[in-house]
Design a protein around this nucleic acid. Structure first.
Lengths: 143, 143
DNA sequence: TATCATTGCATAGCTTGCTATTCAAGTGAA
DNA sequence: TTCACTTGAATAGCAAGCTATGCAATGATA
């Protein structure tokens, strides 16, 4: 049996995702954020004051990963946490001014990375590509 | 400005790659290997007795990452290392019998994961998808 | 041949991800 | 009301990435 890595979807997916992360890293580092914080920021830019549980529910990341990401975001001055008014186990997560201020620039950098990555694809191909990834994610999510 | 994560190539690429890694992880764990070892194994199944440098040259992984992966592979009984005959800085990396024995099963599991992932795509779509990823990787590699 | 640059690999230190576990706080039922 | 179950979050421990740095062996050159 043969196995051709340059034709393996899994191998390519891994390689591609690392290149995305690296490209995003170098572009957003000047803003004081890193790629792992991006999903949480996206959710919080839409609505903050939410609990960790709500954040996890809106994203595709495990609770333990989110807990650690939030610790680093607090350390980096991106969020503050306050006691939840009705549940002492939970906290409300709020964006700091710093985090709010960089939103548009961060969007811009992420869009730039996507544009660079997709620069060799036509409009129709880009749209197919996004569609395929959605279907693949769906197929793997319900095992 | 808006940013829709379910339409961001980078977001989807990250999510998809994690699902691939998880699916592969659970299928190959019974063989005594983990996803991060797969690239090195692919290269070594083709040819072993090579140096770390040669392995790095044939894969898309940094030298430091490879060094750590090789330590874990040695710990797990997948490789042995011998002194290089003509360069005392280098070592030759050899697969153990255990690593050689699991090759076909490992190929099979990886192919199964790819098949599951791509199950919602037609033959033409699968081939497009692989092609797109190749182009995207190319675009990001030469910055 | 002595020195200096290069090279092969290891190490340090960090992020991002996971599973499993713990623990305190909330909830429901006897 | 108490006791057991559930739930929100933190922690432990590991893998797999990365960049930067260190170090010893090679190689090239004055």
């Amino acid at each position: 049996m043969r196995f051709e890595k340059t034709k393996s979807a899994g191998y390519l997916a891994n390689h591609m995702a690392r290149l995305f992360a690296q490209a995003l890293h170098e572009r957003i580092a000047p803003l004081g954020i890193v790629p792992g914080q991006f999903p949480a920021l996206l959710a919080l830019w839409e609505r903050d004051g939410v609990t960790q549980k709500e954040l996890v529910a809106r994203l595709d990341i495990e609770q333990a990963t989110m807990a650690n990401t939030l610790i680093r975001m607090e350390r980096d001055g991106l969020i503050r946490r306050t006691r939840h008014p009705s549940d002492a186990r939970a906290q409300q997560i709020w964006l700091t001014a710093k985090a709010k201020d960089i939103r548009d620039e961060a969007y811009q950098e992420a869009n730039d990375v996507n544009a660079l990555a997709l620069s060799g694809l036509s409009e129709a191909e880009r749209s197919n590509f996004i569609d395929y990834m959605g279907r693949i994610i769906g197929a793997m999510q319900d095992d």
